[in-house]
Computed example of a mutant assay.
Amino acid sequence: MAWRFALALAPVASDDAREDFSDTFRPLDPGAPALPVGELSAQRGDGVFESLGVVDRHPQEVGPHLERLAASAALCDLPAPNPEQWRQAIRAAAAHAPITGEGVLKLILSRGVEHGATPTAWVTVADAADNSAVRERGIRLVTLDRGYALDVPTRAPWLLLGAKTLSYAVNMAAIREAKRRGADDALFVSSDGFLLEAPTANLILRIHGRFVTPLPAGGILHGTTQRSVFAHLERSGHDTAYEAIPVADLAKADAAWLVSSVRLAAPVTAVDGIRLAVDAPRTADLNRHLLSRRD
């Protein structure tokens, strides 16, 4: 990933109502060391983040991403981010994204230095990977047991299963395991047999003409891209739903996609070696919509 630009954000109260926050962030050299040794994001993954797509220097879905950043911060007992400060920092960083084509913005909020008084926050922008091929040819998945039942997030909220935290080691291990098994990505399932999500994406199935996705209450990150896809489908007259989906229902699906902010909509071609049909026209329609989004 080619880093282009980075900004450090100074702590600001969430209710600070000033109009100009430009004096609260400063550029960083994206190729130089920036974090102190005691930074808890590096030591413990103690923080939250968001990844936004940027198309032709236009950041996508800024409002939903900032809402989810605030929700993750609340779950982790981090100070509430000031949305206008972050919005202005996003605009400043996006100005350094590719003039044409796709980039990726990352928003990061950590607990800061151990025993320190303030959190650490920064925004980065980089070139996005070329995802055009995977959007066309699709991806093969293997199901992996996530190790807990569907109701565990409700019974044990301290596991932070609904927060987008920096603790991504398990997610990356799942992708490596999927590749060891000859697939491209993993699809988590609950120990009691329900579909969840991929390590970095949400799952959407089309079953009997309805578009369904697993319930966020199952410890699934409520995806901004998945919500945008559902809104687009609903405007086109399609039925959408959030449901507890048994693993066995994969056999009923006539099409499936993984969706995320940067990869966008990738059709699923197989799960555990069982082939799924690919709806190329629908996939193209979803990606046209997702590429056209603006803040």
Rank of each mutant, 00 (worst) to 15 (best):
P33A: 14
P33I: 12
A34G: 13
A34R: 15
A34M: 14
A34V: 14
L35M: 14
P36G: 14
P36Y: 02
P36Q: 13
P36R: 14
P36V: 13
P36A: 15
V37Y: 12
V37K: 00
G38C: 12
E39Q: 12
E39M: 10
L40D: 07
L40A: 13
L40G: 10
L40Q: 13
S41P: 08
S41W: 02
A42C: 14
A42H: 01
A42R: 10
Q43W: 07
Q43C: 13
Q43T: 04
Q43I: 13
Q43M: 13
R44T: 08
R44C: 12
G45R: 03
G45C: 10
G45A: 10
G45S: 09
G45E: 09
D46G: 12
G47E: 08
G47F: 02
G47M: 08
V48C: 12
F49G: 01
F49C: 06
E50P: 06
E50R: 08
S51P: 03
S51V: 13
S51F: 00
L52V: 01
L52Q: 02
L52S: 03
L52A: 06
G53P: 07
G53C: 05
G53S: 10
V54T: 07
V54K: 04
V54Q: 03
V55I: 09
V55S: 01
D56T: 06
D56E: 10
D56N: 14
R57L: 07
R57K: 05
H58S: 12
P59R: 00
P59N: 10
P59E: 08
E61S: 14
E61N: 11
V62W: 02
V62D: 10
V62E: 07
G63P: 00
G63T: 09
P64F: 05
P64H: 01
P64Q: 04
P64C: 03
P64K: 03
H65A: 05
L66C: 03
L66I: 00
E67G: 05
E67D: 08
E67I: 00
E67F: 01
R68H: 03
R68T: 06
R68C: 04
